[in-house]
Simulated scan of single mutants.
Amino acid sequence: MECDTSKRWTLEDVELAEQFLSTHNDNYTNFPFHKELFLKFIKENDGYFPVKIEALPEGTCCHVHTPVYQIIAEGEYTPLVTFLETLLTMIWYPSTVATLSRRARDIIEEAFEDTVDESGYFLLESRLQDFGFRGCTSLEQSIIGGSAHLINFTRSATMSAGYYVQYKINNGKPIGLSIPATEHSVMLSHKTEKKGGFLVIRPDSGNQVEVVLMALRAEEKIFGCDVNKKGYKVMRKCGVIQGDNVTIHSLKAILKAIKEAGYSAQNVLFGMGAGLLQKINRDTMSFATKLSHIRYADGTERNIMKIPTMDSTKISLPECCPPNDPDNLLRVIYDHGKVVEWDDFDTIRKRVAKEWKALPKFYNNISPELKSKIDKVTQELKNN
Rank of each mutant, 00 (worst) to 15 (best):
T5P: 13
T10C: 09
E15W: 05
Q19I: 10
L21P: 05
S22Y: 05
T23Y: 11
D26M: 03
Y28M: 11
H34C: 08
K35Q: 13
K35V: 07
E36S: 11
N45W: 05
V51D: 05
E54P: 00
E54D: 12
A55R: 01
P57R: 02
E58A: 08
H65N: 13
Q70G: 00
G75N: 03
L80P: 05
V81C: 06
F83G: 09
F83Q: 10
L87N: 07
T89G: 00
W92T: 07
S95R: 00
S95A: 15
V97R: 06
T99L: 08
E109Y: 10
E109F: 04
G120F: 13
F122E: 11
L124D: 02
C136A: 14
S138Y: 03
L139V: 14
G145H: 10
L150E: 13
V165T: 15
Y167G: 14
K168G: 04
K173E: 15
S178V: 08
S185Y: 12
L188K: 02
H190T: 07
K194G: 07
K195T: 15
V200M: 12
V200H: 02
S205P: 00
S205I: 03
N207T: 07
E210C: 00
A215V: 05
D226S: 13
V227H: 05
K229R: 09
K233A: 13
V234E: 06
V234A: 05
V246C: 03
I248C: 02
I258Q: 09
A261W: 08
G262N: 10
A265L: 10
G273V: 13
G275Y: 10
L276I: 06
Q278T: 14
S286R: 07
H293C: 08
A297G: 08
M305F: 01
M305N: 01
K306Q: 12
K314E: 06
L317C: 05
E319T: 00
C321S: 06
P323H: 01
P323E: 11
L329N: 10
L329I: 02
W342N: 14
D346T: 01
A358H: 01
N384R: 04
